[in-house]
Design a protein around this nucleic acid. Structure first.
Lengths: 226, 226
DNA sequence: ATATTTTTTGAATATTTTTTCATTTTAACC
DNA sequence: GGTTAAAATGAAAAAATATTCAAAAAATAT
């Protein structure tokens, strides 16, 4: 999984470094720009910037201008760094499509929290780990599986197994293959243990348990209808 | 600390619901009135309304009348919802002591921004860093958490942990992840220490302790209901 | 310094999951 | 149909994991 790119725009290099340090620690890739023009350059060159942190006060092209310019082409989330208590700014900003404000001075912790919250909200985070087929939905982030909207109470292994099935919809999977993927590769117990798990899965899935089909002399296959 | 009360007056219930939804999310308590008379009733009955959002066009008693009536006794901030581009209205309104205009149709985001700006301006603010879910409210600024309005006595770590849970509502969190976020990333103690904190949190949260769910073989998840 | 509170640790206990295994049922083939 | 191999089932043992408690250690306040 690649790190998400965050562009930090501020004329003070110390501030950039501070923010960068904290975001880097959280496994983001941080790009820096010292002024608005540079920011635009980088933004257009790099195709996949996930979020921009923008200081309002900058020489040449200020934060608002940069924001306006970017909004012409992109909906990338923008966090503005403002001086404390300037609500006029905020009003202006919300019209421009700013996602969040953080007033200086701020704690890096808050910054990081907001960044993560926004990325989560805009669904860019963790690649929206969702899977679905035939009314069964798997939300990896929540570690939750539902049938027709109703949550199933699955154990860890059951969840993993069902996920593996969904990821390989329509493909016949040998017990060996399942064992190697869902269990550890060095596992060496009885292959029949899979049968038991399949049994439980099927029963917890109700009538949709039929989607897990037995492939005789071979293993199992997840398939919706036919 | 109690949520601030906002009175929304509009004859269209759909509009009221829309506004209510957004404000509720930001942790305001929203009261609704379908016409001017009802609005006056509620305003006099409830002593501490922090702000009123008032539609101009209403049957019986229109927005102006309501505004005039309220201004006889109170300086509570008033936001008027007007049809687009009716400047005559605005002129009239400023004489009457209207604090802000928002012309329909508006984006709820803007509405929320204005509301918060006004409350900040009039010093009633405190909305800042609030989080809430399922009757649990966290005021980061005050470092205070409440269940159904009743404050919980949380230690520092407990507070941080609960905050982290709220910030990641619905997401399964591994112990490792929790450790890295709530504790320092270089912390290297026993992961069981989380369990102990969870236990205490749950007990202090009363029956809502159930919202912190155990994700077997994985960690914990904060989730309301279901 | 001393007292108090918070945080962490470690071990006992409880719970849940996973695996095993014997038995029954099912499918494929003659 | 009868035979055989494979899969489904159910119950129970084994393993893994979570909860709880009490006490030690650390941090804070007095």
């Amino acid at each position: 999984m690649d790190a998400l790119k965050i562009l930090v725009v501020d004329d003070e290099s110390r501030m950039r470094k501070l923010v960068k340090d904290f975001l880097t620690k959280k496994n983001f890739q941080v790009l820096e720009a010292g002024d608005g023009e540079e920011a635009m350059d980088i933004f257009y060159k790099e195709k996949d910037i996930a979020l921009i942190i923008l200081d309002v006060m900058m020489p040449k092209m200020d934060g608002w201008q940069v924001c306006r310019e970017i909004r012409k082409n992109s909906k990338v989330p923008i966090i503005m760094l403002t001086a404390r208590g300037d609500e006029r700014d905020e009003l202006l900003g919300f019209d421009l499509g700013v996602d969040e404000y953080i007033s200086k001075p701020f704690s890096p912790k808050i910054l990081v929290a907001r960044v993560e919250a926004i990325l989560r909200r805009t669904g860019q985070d963790m690649a929206q780990d969702m899977l679905s087929a035939g009314g069964i939905v798997i939300d990896k982030a929540a570690h939750l599986a539902t049938v027709d909207g109703k949550p199933m109470e699955l154990s860890f292994k059951e969840f993993e197994l069902l996920t593996y099935f969904l990821e390989n919809e329509g493909i016949a999977l040998s017990r060996e293959k399942i064992l190697n993927s869902v269990w550890n590769y060095d596992y060496f117990g009885d292959a029949r243990t899979i049968d038991t798990h399949v049994k439980k899965l099927r029963s917890k899935m109700g009538e949709k348990g039929e989607y897990i089909k037995t492939v005789w002399g071979m293993g199992y296959k997840f398939e919706v209808e036919s």
